[in-house]
Design a binder for these strands. Structure first.
Lengths: 136, 136
DNA sequence: ATAATTATGATAACAATTATCATTATTATA
DNA sequence: TATAATAATGATAATTGTTATCATAATTAT
């Protein structure tokens, strides 16, 4: 049976209160401010659990460690190929529904049961676009 | 200057001739049949290069090692949460264009330059759906 | 044919994550 | 409320996937 833990609650709240997409390591270092004794294994363990229960999202970045996202409203992730920052792209209710429906339909077409989907975009972010133009 | 290599050619052709999404390790073991002396580092190196040049795709699975895909026609990946197999979902020319346009538009909305995008779906595949129903 | 350069293969090094296990915190029960 | 049962923690070892190093081999240029 699953038991409450102060650590898990802290991890979830912390992730909900930030708008970036920290790695386990980054989150861990920040959490130490509130709970100095917390261990990195506990962070990984709870992040995995929170993902399973659907309370948070895991983002598989193209570079380095996995990132985590406490925002559940449907949105799209954009990773900059230059600075590797991940940005949120908001989508309007209408687009969301339209895309989701399309994706659900396609999933059912292969006889599978839909659980989740994500759209991942890569390219050059606004900032890096400018920098690249200066350097060349 | 980039030089030809038998190994790179083999890796690319091999990936083009299969319809699954092997990890570097799986591919490496299979390649040993054709070229027993090939090294795992060579496989990783060339997979990275082929990705950069846009000749193949890298798939960041939710579990385990990255997977590679030699198919360049636009399609969607579906990962089963049970057996973790990755299936291709074909999309019609029309849907492709519609979704791509939407995604490009959203990317430009945040001032970024679009390079690539992928749609990743998770759920229960046809086979595992049946098995789960038997067991419970 | 020889020189210059890039790619290879073996393996060491590394980064991210998971497993282990004794201790602690939480929940159930007497 | 005390005690038992069980799940979670934190330290750290172990593992996994991948990249770096470097001497040697293959490819291309002269």
């Amino acid at each position: 049976m699953k038991k409450y833990s102060r650590q898990r609650e802290l991890i979830l709240n912390s992730l909900r209160n930030r708008t970036d997409h920290p790695t386990a390591e980054i989150l861990y270092k920040d959490l130490k401010n509130d709970m100095p004794g917390i261990g990195i294994a506990t962070v990984y363990r709870n992040l995995a659990e929170l993902c399973e229960s659907g309370s948070i999202l895991k983002i598989k970045s193209n570079t380095g460690a996995d990132r985590y996202d406490g925002k559940l409203q449907p949105h799209i992730h954009f990773e900059c190929n230059e600075c590797h920052e991940i940005y949120d792209i908001e989508i309007e209710e209408m687009s969301t529904r339209r895309i989701e429906n399309e994706i659900r339909r396609l999933t059912e077409d292969i006889g599978a049961e839909y659980a989740n989907s994500s759209i991942y975009i890569t390219g050059l972010c606004k900032k890096c676009k400018v920098l690249v133009n200066i350097n060349y």
